[in-house]
């Protein structure tokens, strides 16, 4: 049965505002708003940070009207699938598990994962080297280092943000340790400071507010920076699988922003180092 034009009109009025037009002249982008300096909410109540700046930059390049909305991390992928918005820019790494349910653009940043612990803790005093461990192909030397970390973590309470590459790494490579999961990096920070957890794993850039803040004197990075393999292929824009046209638009915009150095500039502004991806 052909739908009556009147009903279609009613539906159009009722549901206006959602991404009705598929020409992507308007795009709704979700970010978490609790993951400084990637994305956070400032005292003026506005979303701010690397993802937000880059999102606005990309939208200008795509010639699209963008609305950036905040969405709690643990529901950020299901809500994309549910059609609450069209793209995710929330410091989200491209991983195989996520690729099963959504698609990603090319990466726009890569930063390693590091452990942070109180300076006066045994874990910090163990003298782990601050090398870079590529998890794609683990050498015998790197495996020995992983085993050493695993041994040190045994008996400690380790905090991590839920549904992240960092949680996956702990569960797959660190064996049967006491893992506590948090809904946001901010709450993870709070509990690390409160001493409810002994050590925590997160992205190097995500640790910046804590380590460089006034409370940072008591905490330190411990051991190697982990990247690639289980940690994914850098941070990208999450898109629904069926929205290939949107993905192409984002890819072109990201490429041009990488080529002319805009992404590097924003990274230096927010992270203090160039996280621009070299893939």
């Amino acid at each position: 049965m052909k739908p009556s034009p009147l009903l279609a009109l009613v539906a159009g009025v009722l549901f206006a505002g959602s991404a009705a037009a598929q020409d992507w002249s308007t795009i709704r982008i979700a970010t978490e708003g609790a993951y400084a300096p990637w994305n956070f909410t400032n005292a003026a109540g506005q979303l701010d940070g690397f993802d937000v700046d880059l999102a606005n930059e990309l939208c200008a390049r795509m010639g699209a009207q963008c609305e950036i909305v905040a969405q709690a991390w643990d529901g950020i992928i299901p809500a994309l699938q549910a059609g609450r918005y069209d793209a995710i820019m929330a410091g989200m790494s491209i991983t195989d598990a996520r690729m099963e349910v959504i698609d990603f653009t090319r990466s726009y940043a890569t930063t390693p994962a590091i452990f942070v612990a109180p300076k006066d803790s045994d874990f910090a005093a163990a003298g782990l080297p601050e090398t870079r461990v590529d998890m794609t192909e683990i050498s015998a030397e790197e495996q020995a280092l992983l085993d050493q970390v695993k041994g040190l973590l045994d008996g400690l309470t380790v905090g991590v943000q839920t549904a992240t590459i960092h949680e996956n790494f702990l569960r797959e490579h660190m064996g049967d340790i006491d893992i506590r999961t948090y809904d946001s990096q901010e709450n993870l920070d709070l509990d690390l400071q409160a001493g409810r957890i002994d050590v925590a794993l997160a992205d190097q850039s995500g640790w910046q507010p804590l380590l460089e803040g006034e409370l940072g004197e008591d905490f330190t990075r411990v051991g190697p920076g982990f990247a690639r393999g289980i940690f994914g292929r850098g941070v990208g824009v999450g898109i629904r699988k069926e929205d290939a046209a949107l993905k192409d638009k984002f890819n072109a915009a990201i490429q041009s922003a990488l080529d002319d150095g805009t992404v590097s500039e924003l990274a230096i502004k927010w992270f203090g180092f160039d996280s621009a991806t070299t893939d």
Partner: peptide
């Protein structure tokens, strides 16, 4: 479940983090 305790709702959220089927 909002303060790291894994009771029924906490476990539900953990499963959703892995399956994305809320």
């Amino acid at each position: 479940s909002t303060i790291t305790i894994l009771e029924i709702t906490g476990i539900a959220k953990t499963i959703i983090a892995q399956t994305f089927r809320p």
